[in-house]
Write a protein that binds this DNA or RNA. Structure first.
Length: 476
RNA sequence: GGCGCUAUCGUCUAACGGUUAGGACGGAGCCCUCUCAAGGCUUAAAUACGGGUUCGAUUCCCGUUAGCGCUACCA
């Protein structure tokens, strides 16, 4: 039975790297017909925050993938403690009564492995001091004889090995009795019968410790698959302090990404379907996903000073946007129209949607591409914009006056609109473009806009005539 | 410092030892066109360096360099 888990700690917002880890776990679980478990790793009570927990849930829900089982690690500390004590009872861990180090240790003098006086303390003395209430850290007793090593096969990185001599006697229980991450995580993974641990490569070297814990617990170690990390363009790891909101999933949501487009983008960072597909639906991703397709080098999220989003993410979003049914697009657009301070009731979103569909790359672009649909009065624009190509104000005026006459009586439907306006242009002896451009500017307030006739139709006779009137005033 | 991991166009990536090193994004150019967008076509752009192994290395091995990670009573 395949069982995987995503285990974020609620000490920050949902990071895009974490989101990707969640996605890969989900994809693997669904591809294999397994179980996806969400576990909140909240053993570090001092650093947990409710805000962070909310942010993680918000982000995960937005991804719209879901999970099958849910746990709070903090509900399970008694079990973790018992697991740690069972290791102690087997003689595979010892009490360390040394006080916590106050200063940061320098790494200059080689690794700190263990304190012989603590490790070799007699059971009698250890029990006596513990019994007297002296606080201690419970440490794993890493084998120190011979030249053995911990080994495990990584499904992505291949066979891994690390000498015991390079592994320190790491802590299992803190002096306050709370299990450390390593202990809690492994106890949970064993207890929850996790079959595959898929997580960031930053855990690769921790895994040697974890294998030791699983063995000490008498539990078969799960299979491990580590994922290459997501990094910033400068090669450093993504951090909120250094890179700002670009690392938060909610930034993508609020910027107008479609959840599955975002998922698609993240999947392409560190994984490849091995063919030329780029745009993939959730189901295609699920069907194609395998751990063999995961590669080993870190991937850069290519954001920049002037653009918080990776150009490829934006392009992919545009691709997904274009294949959305209009009703769905209209629905998605609504909150973004509102957020821009525009009134969605001013226009029929189902008619606007197809007009902006291939002109927006992010949902929030609707505010810049289609603002004029949701306004009664256009924001001011320079009168020169109304001048046709190779034409003057007089021509513009003639064109607009003619258009006004046409729009007053023509059937307000784009085919009829186009026919009569083309006819009017011919009558005036101007080129089609010279006719259409002043009209476009008059009704949209700018030179670049969606196709003219559908736009006129969507805007409606009254608003079009009103705007042409305004344009004429501007020209005089 | 020690240990571990990684190294193909600017970025994401493909290439079970034999390819003119492929695709995508982004860039440039052209076409289409009522503007914009979309679309179509064309184009510039990469195997970090040095040694091996081999008839032949992007691919396998070693070294160098660089980057990243771990080295906490954080996760």
């Amino acid at each position: 039975m395949i069982r995987v888990r995503f285990a974020p700690s609620p000490t920050g917002y949902l990071h895009i790297g974490s989101a990707r880890t969640f996605i890969f776990n989900w994809l693997f679980a669904r591809h294999e017909g397994g179980t996806m478990i969400l576990r909140i790793d909240d053993t570090d009570v001092d650093r947990n925050t409710q805000a962070s927990l909310d942010s993680i849930f918000d982000g995960l829900k937005w991804l719209d993938l879901g999970w099958d089982e849910f746990y709070h690690q903090s509900d399970r500390v008694a079990m973790h403690r018992e697991a740690a004590m069972s290791i102690f009872r087997k003689g595979l861990a010892y009490r360390d009564f040394a006080p916590a180090e106050s200063e940061e240790r320098s790494y200059g003098d080689g690794p700190w492995l263990f304190r012989p006086e603590m490790r070799e303390m007699t059971a009698e003395e250890s029990d006596r001091r513990a019994g007297a209430g002296e606080p201690f850290v419970l440490r794993f007793r890493v084998p120190r004889t011979g030249d053995g090593a911990v080994t495990f096969p990584d499904l992505v990185y291949g066979p891994q090995s690390k000498a015991f001599a390079d592994i320190e006697d790491f802590a299992l229980l803190r002096s306050n009795g709370i299990p450390t991450y390593h202990m809690a995580s492994c106890a949970d993974d064993a207890d929850l019968r996790i079959s595959h641990i898929i997580r960031g490569q930053d855990h690769l070297t921790n895994t040697f410790k974890h294998v030791l814990i699983f063995e000490a617990l008498g539990a078969p170690p799960p299979k491990f698959a580590h994922l290459p990390l997501l990094i910033a363009p400068d090669g450093s790891k993504l951090s909120k302090r250094k890179h700002g909101p670009v690392v938060s999933v909610t930034t993508y949501r609020d910027g107008g990404f479609l959840p599955h487009a975002f998922v698609n983008f993240l999947c392409l960072l560190g994984w490849s379907p091995k063919d030329d597909r780029e745009k993939m639906s959730r189901d295609e991703l699920r069907d194609s996903f395998t751990l063999e397709g995961v590669n080993r080098s870190n991937a850069v999220v290519n954001f920049s000073e002037d653009d918080p989003f990776d150009p490829k993410a934006v392009w992919l979003n545009a691709e997904h946007l274009r294949s959305l049914p209009v009703e769905a697009l209209a629905e998605k657009l609504e909150p973004f129209v509102r957020a821009a301070g525009l009134d969605p009731a001013r226009a029929d979103l189902k008619k606007v949607a197809p007009l902006v569909q291939e002109r927006i790359r992010l949902l929030k672009d609707v505010a810049t591409v289609g603002d004029f649909f949701f306004l009664d009065e256009l924001p001011p624009y320079p009168a020169e914009e109304l001048l046709p190509q190779k034409g003057d104000a007089a021509m513009s005026r003639r064109v607009l006056e003619s258009a006004r006459l046409v729009l007053e009586k023509v059937e307000f439907e784009h085919v009829a609109l186009e026919a009569s306006l083309r006819e009017a242009a011919a009558t005036l002896g101007v080129k089609a473009g010279q006719m259409f451009q002043p009209i476009r500017v008059a009704v949209c307030g700018r030179k670049n806009a969606p196709p003219l006739f559908e736009t006129l139709e969507t805007l409606g006779r009254q608003r079009c005539l009103h705007r042409i009137e305004r344009a004429l005033e501007l020209l005089s």
